[in-house]
């Protein structure tokens, strides 16, 4: 375990927002029961940045979908502020691996969608609120473009603004930066952290990239191929984790050490032999 001594020491006092107890999801496949998620217990605190990692098929996405309310658990329960989650809701904004922009709307109109669904009707009010988040994700110059005219990175940014404008308490992100080039990815990492610090939401972020996990997280939950959470690792790295702070003498060493720790846990979970550095 990492010997975290920064502000994360206070995480025990933070209010629990989401709690999972014994969450299990079974699927029928070729007549056999398959446990995608198995007996997961997890408490996620308000304003926490939790990253879930694990080998392919470890049930990370399924777990996220259950928190989003798209699928009910087979057994166990998921509570949000004590209330059982029964279906999707505006308090949990989910950002999907594939962006879901509406092709017949411009970026601005796509971002306004969430406001329309909420019943905000004043054109000026809608536009001002939407532009606020379009500015935040750095798409001001492309507000009038249609999705077909956007690059991959711009689409992710637009999807992010679409969800952020509805002011969800919790952001659920399922590999949102997969398949982006590394420069775009680095920029978006910094921006999602900046937005998270600004909006004070709670983020549950699923990825299979360990650099991403170490860079973004407060804690990292590692899932194994049986669909269990095998370990939760605190991330003691100080923030911010980019720019000149990332050039501090021991930052790189601590970063790599934590990544190796997570890597070993993932390997064990995948049934491979762990190695030590």
């Amino acid at each position: 375990m990492a010997e975290g001594t920064n502000d994360k020491a206070g995480s025990g006092r933070r209010k629990t927002l989401i709690s999972l107890s014994g969450v299990t999801k079974k699927y029928q496949k070729n007549g056999k029961d398959l446990e995608a998620v198995s007996g997961c217990d997890l408490e996620i605190a308000e304003n926490e940045f939790l990253v879930i990692v694990g080998p392919t098929g470890s049930g990370k996405s399924t777990l996220l979908k259950m928190i989003a309310g798209f699928e009910p658990p087979t057994s166990g329960e998921i509570r949000l502020e004590g209330e059982l989650i029964k279906g999707p809701g505006a308090d949990r904004g989910m950002i999907f691996q594939e962006y879901a922009l509406l092709p017949w709307r411009t970026v601005l109109k796509n971002v306004e969608l969430g406001l329309e669904l909420k019943g905000v009707s004043g054109e000026k009010e809608k536009k001002a609120l939407a532009m606020n988040y379009i500015d935040m994700v750095g798409l001001t110059y492309a507000a009038g473009k249609y999705p077909v005219e956007l690059s991959g990175g711009m689409k992710r940014r637009a999807s992010l603004a679409m969800i952020l404008v509805t002011k969800p308490k919790i952001l659920l992100m399922d590999g949102p930066f997969n398949a982006l080039d590394s420069k775009t990815k680095l920029t978006l990492h910094n921006e999602i952290v900046r937005i998270w610090e600004h909006e004070h939401n709670t983020i549950i972020f699923v990825t299979s990239e360990l650099d991403e996990a170490v860079k973004l997280s407060d804690r990292i939950a590692v899932m194994n191929k049986r669909g269990q959470i095998s370990r939760i690792i605190d991330n003691p790295l100080p923030r911010p984790r980019f720019g000149k702070e990332a050039l501090a003498p021991d930052f790189h060493h601590r970063f790599v050490a934590l990544r190796e720790e997570v890597m070993n846990e993932v390997k064990i979970g995948a049934g491979l032999e762990a190695c030590t550095i």
């Binding site: 809701g89 989910m94 999907f96 509406l102």
Partner: peptide
């Protein structure tokens, strides 16, 4: 696209 539907649902539609 089911993606559009899920996205709308996650916005509370």
């Amino acid at each position: 696209s089911p993606l559009w539907l899920n996205m709308a649902k996650t916005m509370g539609a």
